[in-house]
Write a protein that binds this DNA or RNA. Structure first.
Length: 566
RNA sequence: GAGCCGGUAGCUCAGCCGGUAGAGCAGCGGACUUUUAAUCCGCUGGUCGUGGGUUCGAUCCCCACCCGGCUCACCA
């Protein structure tokens, strides 16, 4: 911030003052705050008639200095600018539900107590209008000179946008019908030493919003809305899984081997043990060990870390749900996924579709009755989340959009060339996947479960009994976005050991899942039940459900480069 | 990592063909006891992202760098 200019007034500490308040007023003046505002401002001005950029007087002119000065004036009133416990407040949204009549001394309205931030401030001589904000809403305050003490009136004159105050007063309506608290007692709770953004059109700059998320939450209503909805989604998932008998666990975030996905890990180090460690890139392997240990329905909802690029759909740390169900398979997981998503849609009450449709299905994995249409808005589109979601096999989609059989090596190679993909040195399944991503994915408006993937791309997945070239895996796509990834878990330790050791040609080591995890294989050797497993990217799910186009707005503090010297 | 776009007052932005900057809001002083984007009068506030270069002169042109956004790559 500013305030770095040098003063030419020797013997004073003003020029290099910090916000904490060493700025003295005049060399001859005592502590600034004890002077009445008018007097000291005048004094300042008269002493510094000529200001230049390099020799700036230490009078309040920087916005932050003005506020620091007001803080001292509040102290001079005998008040604590950093406030204290303030019990018994009512959320503003609830105050707004109370019935109120026009102010009338003969018939006083209800007494209320509220606390929050001053987000509008309008002087009017002997009458002040403020707007008080809390996380539930806004309400207008009216302060009249003859309704409060002299100290409170002085305090009211010193308020800045962004200050935190508590009020007691009478609820009523002004002449224009605006619901208003007429303040009878004003309590100062905290000073904002920095100016708050003030623009009727709101905050426009993404970088500014991200670096000042706390302001974004106050002045961009959508930001707070999304934060609430995110919590609600996570809570809904927990209660839904709880109802189905799943047990939530916590497994380590520090791993010896970063397995369970193909992604570059963050590296760290443990000093006492003197070993290298990785931050986890997936939850899978520990959870499957718990399957061996007898937890038949288990899940974890936690942060994973991938040392990769940042984009509107990728943040280096993000939240994953992974769950495993013994004796299930990937079809169990499809049903479960539908049930989870529908439960979230209902919890958020965002569906716009008509009700009254016939029940279309019901089974153990679905805790909700499938009884009505559930469409939600997403960008300029609509997504129909009415279950059951479409289910389409990978091979059929490939044939339909690429135009050849995915197992036909020659046809795939020539299709690749047409798409400007160099097939040299690449394993067949890698080529197939590249073609799928280039051609098919963008056509998947969904929601659609794409199932039965080329086997070699899925080293933790069980092969299909009827066709070992494909693995029992699905991904759920909505508008080209991968929301879920699930499979019938591979529980054969010999096959697992083999796929761990096989790096696919054409894939760089970073992207390979070829990381031998002997400890995991040993766990499998003790017998893991056949199971279905599911992973859902919670951030992307929240994006979909809150109609948000960038992952940075469903994560409160997405990773940013440090601002550096400024 | 690459391409494109951007960074000007506390906030949101304008600034033409190069002549060292403007508006609205916020802030400060004044008026106002029912305002609603309050109004009225007066005023303050800028290292034009950073560093070089070209030029008599650079917010503007050139180069490099920093930060961000979008797209791509990456993300089984």
């Amino acid at each position: 911030m500013g305030r770095t200019r040098v003063t030419d007034c020797s013997g004073k500490n003003g020029g290099v003052s910090s916000a904490s308040g060493s700025r003295s007023s005049m060399s001859a003046a005592p502590a600034a705050g004890v002077l009445p505002p008018k007097a000291r401002r005048k004094t300042n001005r008269s002493h510094h008639p000529h200001r230049t950029y390099t020799t700036v007087a230490d009078e309040p002119q920087d916005l932050a200095e003005v506020r620091a000065d007001k803080l001292r004036q509040i102290e001079a009133l005998g008040l604590d600018p950093w406030g204290h416990r303030f019990d018994g407040t009512t959320p503003i949204s609830r105050i707004r539900q109370l019935t109120a009549n026009p102010f009338d001394d003969a018939n006083p309205g209800p007494k209320v107590r509220a606390a929050g931030r001053v987000v509008r401030y309008r002087t009017g001589g002997k009458l002040l209008f403020l707007e008080l904000w809390d996380q539930t809403g806004r309400v207008q305050l009216m302060i009249r000179v003859n309704k409060v003490t002299e100290t409170e009136w002085k305090l009211a004159q010193l308020l800045d946008l962004g200050d935190l105050v508590g009020v007691d007063g009478e609820l009523g309506k002004t002449r224009t019908g605006e619901l208003t608290i007429q303040v009878e007692k004003l309590t100062f709770l905290a000073k904002s030493l920095e100016p708050h953004p003030k623009d009727v059109f709101g905050m426009g700059d993404m970088e500014y919003r991200l670096r000042h998320r706390y302001l974004d939450m106050i002045y961009t209503p959508d930001t707070l809305r999304r934060a609430h909805q995110r919590v609600q989604v996570i809570r809904t998932i927990r209660t839904h899984l709880d109802k189905l008998g799943y047990m939530e666990v916590e497994t380590p975030t520090l791993h010896n081997i970063a397995g369970g996905a193909a992604a570059r890990p963050f590296e760290t180090h443990h000093n006492a043990l003197d070993i290298g460690l990785y931050l986890r890139i997936a939850l899978e392997l520990p959870l499957k060990r718990l399957l061996v240990g007898g937890l038949e329905k288990v899940y974890e909802l936690g942060r994973v870390f991938r040392n990769e690029g940042i984009s509107p759909r990728h943040n280096p740390e993000f939240t994953m749900l992974e769950l495993y169900q013994a004796y299930g398979n990937y079809e169990t997981m499809m049903d479960l996924t539908e049930g989870l998503i529908v439960a979230c849609v209902d919890a958020l009450d965002i569906a716009t579709g008509e009700g009254g449709a016939e029940p279309v299905g019901h089974n153990e994995s679905k805790a909700v009755l499938i009884d009505r249409k559930r469409e939600i808005p997403f960008g300029d589109k609509t997504v129909d989340l009415t279950p059951p979601f479409q289910r389409a096999s990978y091979g059929e989609l490939f044939r339909q959009h690429v135009g050849c059989d995915m197992f036909d090596e020659n046809a795939v190679r020539s299709a690749a060339r047409v798409e400007d993909i160099n097939p040299e040195g690449k394993a067949h399944d890698v080529l197939v996947q590249e073609l799928f991503e280039d051609i098919v994915e963008e056509k998947l408006v969904g929601p659609v479960f794409v199932y039965d993937y080329p086997a070699s791309l899925c080293p933790l997945t069980k092969r299909k009994r009827t066709d070992p070239r494909v693995a029992e895996r699905f991904e759920l796509y909505v508008h080209g976005m991968e929301l879920a990834n699930a499979y019938t878990e591979l529980n054969d330790p010999a096959t697992q050991a083999e796929t761990f050791s096989k790096q696919l040609a054409g894939l760089p080591a970073d992207e390979s899942m070829a990381k031998m995890d002997h400890d995991f294989v040993r766990a499998l050797r003790h017998g893991m039940p056949p199971a279905g497993g599911l992973g859902i990217g919670i951030d992307r799910l929240v994006m979909l459900l809150t109609n948000t186009q960038t992952i940075r707005d469903v994560i409160l503090f997405p990773l940013l480069r440090p601002e550096g010297a400024k």
